[in-house]
Design a protein around this nucleic acid. Sequence first.
DNA 1: CGTTAAATGGAAATGATTTTCATTTAAAAA
DNA 2: TTTTTAAATGAAAATCATTTCCATTTAACG
Lengths: 158, 158
Amino acid sequence: MRQRHCNRPGGWQGKLRGCGYRITIGREAILDVLTKYKDKHLSAEDIYLKVHSIYSDIGLTSVYRTLDMLISMGMVSKFDFGDGRARYEIAGEGQKEDHHHHLVCTICKRVINYNDFIDEELQLINKTEKSLSEKHKFEIRSHLVQFYGICDKCKKKK
Amino acid sequence: MRQRHCNRPGGWQGKLRGCGYRITIGREAILDVLTKYKDKHLSAEDIYLKVHSIYSDIGLTSVYRTLDMLISMGMVSKFDFGDGRARYEIAGEGQKEDHHHHLVCTICKRVINYNDFIDEELQLINKTEKSLSEKHKFEIRSHLVQFYGICDKCKKKK
DNA sequence: CGTTAAATGGAAATGATTTTCATTTAAAAA
DNA sequence: TTTTTAAATGAAAATCATTTCCATTTAACG
């Protein structure tokens, strides 16, 4: 799920403050991890373990809570790749270079980022978004495009 | 998640047999419900309750098992709309009329089917699919396109 | 610095889905 | 048709990601 429209001045601290949230070391640590691993697809536990290794006071509960907050602000996107745990990525600020969609192996759950035809995709998505939001009176915030299939390795194993 | 390429002769029974599965009354009942409610977004429990009211011997476990089987055959698509329970739809056999994507309210989880620009979407999806499957050696089986936002009613409530 | 509501951690609860296992049954073989 | 056998089943138990509860801590305001 991709988000946009999250540009407010003042970096992440400004964004949080602007939305009435407090600045805490836990939130900073979580954002740091998400930024460092922006092309990975970390689960809440992945994030917890990475943050915990630096700042061991953080709890898994807070990771979940912070992720929910960041998602509601559009700063983080949540994905479901079918392995029973949600994945999280920092949402690029609308720059095309950062924008990617996913190709998921339904067997081993491997995920590949791609941005082939991303211009065309985004163009069509924008058009569709505009039309849908008028027609259905939705305030559209994000979209999700994923392909599913069987990867090279899993095909060979069969 | 939309599936295609599931046309084998002999109706659903032929398809199951062709894949080495047995024909059972439970499976028939589940497929009947999915077909009857093809434009709804039923959860496993929804399906269980509807099937159970007709054929009361069916168990929830079998509903899950049958759904998994049908998904692996590409006859059913599984969706995540963010409310903690998966949703299932019978996969139209590639006819454009049946093909739709979803618009999801992130607050009340209401789901609207749409097929505006579906021709253009499918055209771009096919192109992307072809390119991705060559580039990443994936055998692509299905895709997922969803939009998220806040619906009319939820906007008013705020 | 004191105040206060927001944020936190840990433990317990939740709830969808999966696993286990003894029993039933579809369908191939005889 | 009857026999045979592995697949399919239901019920109960287990799993496990996520959420809730609640007592404690803390960011940010004056």
